[in-house]
């Protein structure tokens, strides 16, 4: 389809992406590097070193790292089980991962309050079994819980996709050559699934690092993540310059994780779609 007309079909998208992707990002940089009067300044960026901002960044990094690691540990076995199953079953499985999106994400997260509360469903069950109750609502643990709950499918799908693509003959060959199941896993399956793992890590880490909703709903609004600070600068304080400055700092971490993904996943094998 290499005729001249076909090339022009990309024009609407080219215009659209300049207007609604590129220019908005430039706006963030413009506002981030200027003050309210429009004079250039570095103050917005440097304000990350203020204890209150710096602390929120550190907590966000810590909580998102913990939830990314737990997501990976939970997802890998699941993806392995799913990929070893019969194909038609898989289709249904994947649909079931998309289905939760049809129940509002805020309500789903709020439902965890009902489950995790001190007098909530889980603790009632634990008490009836004479087990110690969990006191995690409105603590960082609840936020980690919410992150794992919301972003787990983003880890499962890319790993599942790469595992499905692994040629079964490679595994058989490894077994024929005398490797046991553990050796086959560490020498063949795991190295081949690295693109999926890396892609999953980015897809969980970025939304977890930047969330303000989960911390708002499950952290009892006592724990501020960097996302909460930025959100408040925009919606409560209308300080767009400061909010943009902090977003630029945040984007630095996003870009780092994107570069890592690009290095490990050159062919886009691990992409979720």
């Amino acid at each position: 389809m290499k005729n001249k007309f076909v090339k022009w079909l990309s024009l609407p998208y080219a215009v659209w992406s300049i207007a609604f992707i590129i220019i908005p990002l430039l706006m963030v940089f413009y506002f981030g590097f200027t003050d309210k009067t429009g004079k250039p300044t570095l103050a917005n960026i440097m304000s990350i070193s203020l204890p209150v901002h710096f602390k929120s960044l550190l907590i966000a990094l810590l909580l998102s790292l913990i939830s990314t690691i737990i997501c990976l540990l939970l997802s890998y076995p699941l993806a392995m089980i799913l990929s070893s199953m019969n194909k038609d079953n898989n289709k249904l499985m994947i649909l079931i991962f998309v289905l939760p999106m049809w129940m509002n994400f805020l309500l789903r997260t709020l439902a965890w309050q009902t489950l995790l509360e001190n007098e909530g469903v889980i603790n009632t069950i634990l008490r009836s079994l004479h087990l110690p109750a969990l006191k995690i609502i409105n603590t960082p643990y609840a936020i980690v819980f919410g992150m794992i709950y919301n972003f787990l499918p983003f880890m499962v799908l890319p790993i599942y996709n790469v595992l499905c693509k692994i040629d079964k003959n490679l595994l058989n060959a490894a077994r024929d050559l005398g490797a046991n199941e553990v050796q086959t896993f560490f020498k063949v399956t795991l190295p081949l699934s690295v693109p999926g793992i890396i892609s999953g890590i980015t897809m969980v880490f970025v939304p977890a690092l930047t969330t303000f909703v989960i911390s708002d709903l499950l952290g009892g609004s006592k724990i501020l993540l960097i996302g909460n600070v930025i959100e408040q600068e925009f919606t409560l304080n209308s300080n767009w310059n400061l909010g943009s400055g902090l977003s630029i700092v945040l984007m630095l971490f996003i870009v780092i994780s994107m570069i890592i993904t690009a290095v490990f996943d050159k062919d886009g094998e691990g992409s979720a779609l």
């Binding site: 908005p24 990002l25 706006m27 963030v28 970025v206 939304p207 690092l209 930047t210 969330t211 303000f212 996302g227 930025i230 959100e231 925009f234 767009w240 909010g243 943009s244 977003s247 945040l250 984007m251 996003i254």
Partner: peptide, 8 residues
């Protein structure tokens, strides 16, 4: 991040 897309 969605928050960055949103604010941009």
């Amino acid at each position: 991040a969605e928050i960055v897309t949103g604010i941009s």
